[in-house]
């Protein structure tokens, strides 16, 4: 029997769908894929609150085949009724499958219920990796030298993502390459999300959209962009990085996008350490590891874009709340709006 791996994430008390129901659904779904003689059995189903955009269910699967009996720790990620973002489970599944042939540590995708026919909503099942995620580990309780070392390794992980040979790995089979116009492409995408989801007018966002539209940088090269790179999505097992999670926003684009995301002022506590690991340290290390030069002006544009994107995600979250698809109330926050105004119009 294959040994079950340790629980991957720290479970929190959560609410919502019945774990009995989901266990039955998972067992029928996986049993259907493995076949009637597999004796597939789902046990210890537990919902965890990690990841704001998905329902995450941890469970153990036992089954048998010609090789004997097996047990595996898995996680099912199911679309919620609503939330901050709406993404395609099939695309995330394809990204995870393509990552299997690369150096990027990511969960192995097992099964996809693309239309939710078996599990109620579009879902994917992945292998659970050991470790826990801690949003603020970079500024947590560890000694500063350890935290700087960790920040350096997070930077190297991002470099590994960007150095992925996406053509060889087949990413261009399901993701489009925006080429040098990656910034304008992403801006157009998020402008469309804003128009789709807004329930009221946001002159603050109009000011930001105008500024962004006038200054989009040209992408120097196309890379695989994670688009939500943060310690909160990096699994750490003691000191070892065991996985990079949440690939639902991944796309092909400008490497400065991820660099802008992680150095935006509102997220600096997650990535930078005052007086020990600043943005310039991060850029210098990234340049040394990748051999790519970092265009600081482009990073600034992506900093502003990242805050704009955050505001739009909050607009989408507000719509979900008002339409009864989400219980958590989001709305563009004072910090996000003020930050955008200062960046795009000045003090």
């Amino acid at each position: 029997m294959t040994a079950a791996r340790p629980i991957a994430t720290t479970p929190n008390a959560v609410h919502g769908a019945s774990d009995v129901t989901i266990a039955d659904q998972l067992e029928r779904f996986i049993g259907g894929v493995l076949g009637p003689n597999s004796a597939a059995h789902v046990v210890a189903t537990e919902r965890v609150a990690t990841g704001r955009s998905r329902e995450n269910w941890l469970f153990e699967l036992t089954w048998s085949d010609a090789g004997g009996e097996h047990c595996e720790s898995l996680i099912a990620r199911r679309d919620p009724d609503g939330g901050l973002i709406e993404t395609d489970r099939g695309a995330e599944f394809a990204v995870l499958q393509a990552l299997e042939g690369t150096r990027v540590p990511a969960p192995r995708a097992r099964w996809l219920d693309a239309d939710g026919a078996a599990l109620g909503k579009p879902s994917l099942v992945m292998v659970r990796l050991p470790g826990t995620c801690d949003y603020y580990v970079i500024n947590g309780d560890r000694p500063e030298t350890e935290r700087v070392d960790l920040a350096r390794r997070f930077c190297e992980l991002l470099a590994t993502v960007h150095q992925t040979d996406w053509r060889s790995a087949g990413f261009d089979g399901f993701l489009s390459d925006p080429g040098p116009n990656a910034a304008a492409h992403e801006l157009a995408h998020w402008n469309a999300v804003l128009e789709r989801d807004r329930l009221e007018s946001y002159p603050e966002l109009a000011l930001a959209a105008r500024w962004l539209g006038k200054n989009p940088p040209t992408s120097p090269r196309t890379v695989l962009v994670h688009a939500d790179f943060k310690a909160g999505n990096i699994l750490l097992d003691d000191d070892e990085i065991t996985g990079l999670l949440d690939w639902e926003l991944a796309h092909l684009g400008d490497p400065h996008e991820d660099l802008g995301w992680i150095t935006q002022p509102l997220r600096r506590r997650e990535h930078l350490i005052d007086n020990a690991w600043g943005a310039e340290d991060l850029f210098a290390h990234y340049e040394a590891v990748t051999g790519f030069s970092v265009d600081r002006a482009a990073v600034h544009w992506w900093n502003v874009f990242s805050t704009y994107k955050t505001a739009i995600m909050q607009v989408s979250g507000l719509r979900s709340f008002i339409e009864g698809r989400s219980d958590e109330l989001y709305q563009p926050s004072a910090a996000v709006l003020t930050n955008l105004l200062e960046a795009t119009v000045g003090q």
Binding site: E204, L341, E342, V345
Partner: peptide, 20 residues
């Protein structure tokens, strides 16, 4: 004009009772 508008919007963000 954009600066004048932004000045008001900053004041609004600080005073908005729904955000604080």
């Amino acid at each position: 004009a954009r600066r004048s508008i932004a000045d008001h919007l900053r004041a609004r963000a600080a005073a908005n009772p729904a955000l604080h």
